[in-house]
Design a protein around this nucleic acid. Structure first.
Length: 241
DNA sequence: GCGACAG
DNA sequence: ATCTTGTCGC
């Protein structure tokens, strides 16, 4: 895939906010109601000390989820993790992974928020803008907005709202497990995003595409770093052998 | 001022 | 997110 809407990468928080603010009005929440044929899932896994990111992009058929393409990437983020500016930390790794795909999916699902964000411009929105493609945010924790308690049974949900406006959905994807949070990123609405997420559930908390991407990203990381080859602590080096 | 805070 | 083993529970 091609990164079509390229922009400079910020070095400071102020620059990041500037870029984010300039993109808010470009986010579109319509234009997609057709069932996808190919879906892509994006996920990043952090290396030792959280100083490196291994990303995985996997393209699957929909709705049977057979893998047709995958791409792995590595990046050493320079931007810190700041709630609300997550894109500027993990974005480079995710973009690299997407650039390595030969297949072009109809929609991308990402472990992050879309418009359920303080400025309605979460990571999923940015990725959608970057590649001009529909994106769905599916996060494990709430970043912004409020919702009433979600019923304990699978399928229960509550709208995530802010000042009376619904910006996402808290959805119980599995009995007695914490809900997940769905919000559109770009070129789709919440209904579409929810449908795609829910139709991807296969008995686990996360929809199958993200589950696959998650496993892939972690596998990638372990292969590169070695499961038990983390940097030894100094004292262990001295006393060893 | 205090608490919250995607990964 | 990551560090980290076994272990309690369905």
């Amino acid at each position: 895939m091609k990164w079509v809407n390229v922009h400079d990468w910020p070095r400071t928080k102020a620059e990041a906010y500037e870029i984010q603010d300039s993109r808010i009005d470009k986010v579109r929440l319509n234009g997609n109601n057709v069932e996808p044929e190919l879906i892509c899932a994006l996920e990043g896994a952090y290396g030792y000390g959280g100083q490196s990111v291994y990303a995985a992009a996997v393209v699957l058929t929909y709705p049977d989820f057979k893998e047709v393409d995958r791409s792995l990437s590595f990046d050493t983020p320079t931007f810190p993790y700041i709630p609300g500016l997550f894109y500027f930390r993990e974005g480079p790794a995710l973009i690299k992974a997407l650039e390595g795909l030969k297949e072009t999916p109809d929609v991308i699902m990402i472990t992050a928020h879309g418009i359920a964000h303080p400025r309605r411009c979460g990571l999923a929105c940015h990725i959608g803008l970057d590649f001009d493609i529909p994106t769905i945010g599916c996060a494990r924790r709430l970043l912004f907005g409020k919702h009433r308690q979600v019923g304990v049974n699978r399928g229960s949900s509550q709208p995530v709202v802010h000042r009376g406006e619904q910006i996402g959905l808290a959805y119980r994807s599995k009995d007695e497990v914490k809900p997940i949070f769905v919000s559109p990123g770009h070129r789709c609405d919440l209904t579409y995003a929810t449908n795609v997420v829910v139709s991807g559930l296969r008995g686990y908390r996360l929809p199958e595409p993200l589950r696959v991407a998650h496993l892939l990203a972690n596998k990638h990381k372990r292969i590169m770093e070695g499961k038990n080859n983390k940097k030894a602590k100094p004292e262990e080096v001295d006393s060893a052998g």
